[in-house]
Every structure is written in structure tokens, then in C-alpha cells.
Design a protein around this nucleic acid. Structure first.
Lengths: 119, 119
DNA sequence: CAGCATCCCACTAGATACTG
DNA sequence: CAGTATCTAGTGGGATGCTG
């Protein structure tokens, strides 16, 4: 009974999508996994500056349960676990691209306004 | 000190965009305003079943401060206030469209799986 | 009609310490 | 290395009542 997705009922598609992406690091995890294809726990941790172990594992578990990522365990010593995107995770990442572009444009504009404001 | 957007610094574009859309009803407000062009407070309230007055006004104020919506006050009796999208809000709505489509597809698939599971 | 103020709870997320 | 467990603070969001 964790803090995972509600899994409906949803008012609309965005609602359903937001349910699965909300979480401070989830979109970053998606992006990281999309870039590298496959990532170990420690690599993700280093790739997401500021994330705590607890939040990382919690988000990873929820995303696994939501069918966005795949978790492959190699029973070795030392233990190795590799995370990768599922088809769903990949398509979600695609769907997030325009939003990312919008955010980048907005950030740039805010920064520019800030410079003007300081002048 | 409110519950408004952090307004940076952001790790990436999605981060910046999520900062502005996160809030249970914000994407719905965007969608509603995009559909109707302009909406009064009471109309929005009725259009978003389940929203409380407090959350609606709070989200509207934050979105206004974030430059996503425009608030026009008509000093009449009884008072009238109309909300509409700014150019930024409109473009954000565009950027959210693929995500909405993804969520809709996911919902449909989950529902189908659910039917199968019950069979 | 449109909004503000206040109280309250659940949940999110962080820090820290421990384990197979 | 890859987690678990526990405790705590901060915040999101709901209910209710009041105002111009």
C-alpha cells in the first residue's frame, strides 16, 4: 500500500498520464534510461544529482509496477540490477518530448526576462 | 511562500513544465479553457466535478502568476470574473496533447486487461 | 457570484542507520 | 552493490464558515 499510481478512474488522458509521471524524479529516470538504454542502480543514482536512495528505489518500484520499466536482477557477487524501459516507457518518453521542449523554451524566456529585470 | 511554482532552477525542460502543471486540476483547467475560450469561476467549478473552491481558486491564482491564464474582472453586481488562456497557456496545452493521447491509450489498455482478468 | 481564512489530515519526500 | 527500515518535516488537498 504504497504511494503508487491510483490506476483510475481517470477524468481524461492527461489525468491518467500525470498519475504515472508525477513524482519528482520519474521523468528524469525515463530520460536517463532512454539515453543509456540500460542503467544500474548506482549509475542512476549518480545520474540524478540530489535524489535519495529511498526515493530512487521507491520511484523505480512504482514505475516497474506501472509497466514503464523493466528490472533485471543478476544474482552475482556483488549483486547487479539493471533497469531499462519497456515499450510503454519508451512511448511515454516520446509523448513527453513536446512538454520538455515547451519547458525548455519557457526556462529560456524566464532567464531572459530575469536578465532584463536586473538591468 | 505559497504553493506556487518553484520557478527554477530546473534540471531539464520536463522538470520546468511539470513544475507548472503539477496540481490535481491544472491540466483539466487548461483543457476546459481551451475548449470554451473563456470561462467564469462558477462554470469552471461545475465543469470540474469534485474540485473544491479553495483548490480551484488556488490553482487559478498560481496559473495566473505563471502566465498561463488571464483573469479579467468585471466590476458589476453580482461580480463577474472571466478566465482565459494566454499564448503560453495555449502552447502548453498543445504540448500536453501527446501525453493526453498516451494516457487515453493506456487507460483503454488497462480497462481491456481488467476485463480479461475478470473473465 | 466570487473569493478569503482557518483547521486538519494524508501523503511526499528527506535524513539516517542497518542488511544480504 | 543494492537495497530496507524508521522517523520526521513539509506540503497538497479537503471541509467548513465568513465577506464584498
Amino acid at each position: 500500500m504504497g504511494a503508487s499510481a491510483r490506476r483510475g478512474p481517470y477524468i481524461c488522458g492527461i489525468d491518467a498520464a500525470m498519475d504515472v509521471v508525477s513524482g519528482k524524479w520519474k521523468s528524469l529516470i525515463l530520460w536517463e534510461l532512454d539515453n543509456y538504454g540500460t542503467r544500474r542502480f548506482g549509475e542512476l543514482r549518480r545520474g540524478l544529482p540530489g535524489v535519495s536512495e529511498k526515493m530512487l528505489i521507491q520511484h523505480l518500484r512504482e514505475m516497474e509496477e506501472d509497466g514503464l520499466i523493466h528490472r533485471e536482477v543478476y544474482r552475482e557477487v556483488p549483486p547487479r540490477v539493471e533497469y531499462s524501459l519497456t515499450a510503454d516507457g519508451t512511448s511515454l518518453n516520446e509523448a513527453l518530448r513536446p512538454l520538455g521542449a515547451w519547458g525548455t523554451a519557457r526556462s529560456a524566456r524566464l532567464a531572459a526576462d530575469d536578465v532584463v529585470a536586473r538591468a
